[in-house]
């Protein structure tokens, strides 16, 4: 904001003099807009309840930020869109059928405990929305895993519950999943559209990809984290994801990576949450390591862990390592190399 005001003034400071037009709030609001397609698809599939859940989560996140900053006599920065984004991401990560207090508690934990208590935007160690969701999942394990089928939520009030594709894949295997969706091509298409049980904003792969393309095109995110994240996950799904239908033993190199990439929250996580500027490494090489770690942990939890989905825990665990990764891949300071060479 201050930078734009000074634009026409004579600059007498030392370099750099060329400044980017980008501001934190502009980037944040762009990310919010890029999530719009996925939100619309979620609203279309899961109905008014989904809209209410997301709205509650956004309102309480912004309100929590406002009240905390007011109470601590800090500058109120709700206009920068970061609290809005946290609330939006949290809402998108919830099942549509949760009771009203769940998004409120989650937003409070995300904004106040995860972000503001650590010093506000830019100082949080973990992705706020994901901590909010982890807190909710551990606190309300039953409520947070009631998934409703898309049609049921839209039409009837007493929604029919079902397992997510990943849950079915884990409990009953691929053949059951194909049986439910008809054939394999139909399964892929439905997953791509987002016509499946799951969190509100994670289901529609195509809508998420549109948003991600927008962010990549505007260069708000780079390819490093998403590609290494999804690539590692796909590789692991292909190598270790296969099962012998008769014995149930692992069958190497027969897994189906496409199902693993299209179901669960992996697209939402890889493009919109692992790439959070604050909690991912800022060095490009480090970002690749970060993405590989996320992909590896996600598939480890999906294939071997107790939960059907592991994106959230994978990103949170890698968030811990982000500062260490950054230190490991320290870039050379501009000009520092010359001094070293001249000493030789």
């Amino acid at each position: 904001m201050e930078a734009t005001k000074k634009e026409h003034e004579l600059i007498v400071t030392v370099s750099p003099h060329i400044k980017s037009e980008e501001t934190t709030s502009r980037i944040m609001w762009s990310v919010n807009i890029s999530l719009l397609p996925a939100v619309l698809m979620g609203a279309y599939f899961f109905g008014p309840k989904a809209v209410i859940t997301i709205a509650l989560s956004i309102i309480s996140a912004v309100l929590a930020e406002y009240v905390f900053q007011k109470g601590m006599n800090r500058k109120v920065a709700i206009n920068d869109g970061s609290a809005f984004l946290t609330g939006l991401l949290l809402g998108m990560n919830l099942p549509a059928s949760v009771p009203f207090y769940i998004p409120i508690i989650g937003s409070f934990v995300a904004v106040v405990i995860t972000k503001q208590l650590f010093g506000g935007l830019g100082f949080n160690v973990f992705n706020p929305a994901l901590i909010g969701r982890a807190f909710l999942l551990i606190s309300f394990p039953k409520l947070m895993t009631i998934w409703t089928t898309p049609e049921a939520a839209f039409v009837a009030f007493d929604a029919k519950t079902t397992a997510t594709p990943l849950g079915i894949l884990k409990e009953e295997g691929l053949s059951k999943l194909i049986e439910i969706f008809g054939d394999k091509i139909n399964l892929y298409m439905e997953l791509l559209k987002g016509h499946r049980a799951g969190s509100i904003g994670e289901t529609s792969a195509i809508a998420l990809l549109i948003g991600a393309a927008f962010l990549l095109f505007r260069r708000y995110i780079t390819w490093h984290i998403p590609v290494s994240f999804l690539g590692t996950a796909a590789l692991m799904a292909w190598v270790f994801g296969g099962k012998n239908p008769e014995t149930g033993n692992m069958l190497f190199f027969t897994g189906d990576p496409i199902i693993h990439l299209l179901s669960g929250g992996i697209l939402l996580g890889a493009f919109f949450m692992a790439t959070d500027y604050v909690t991912c490494p800022s060095v490009k090489k480090g970002q690749i390591i970060f993405g590989i770690g996320c992909g590896f942990l996600t598939m480890l939890i999906r294939l071997k862990g107790g939960f059907p989905e592991g994106v959230m825990f994978a990103i949170l665990i890698m968030n811990c390592f982000a500062p260490i990764i950054d230190r490991g891949f320290k870039t050379n300071i501009f000009g520092a190399l010359k001094i070293k060479e001249s000493k030789k």
Partner: peptide
Amino acid sequence: TKPLLIMVLPA
């Protein structure tokens, strides 16, 4: 009421 189960867990 649904209590916040996380509070009785180690975390």
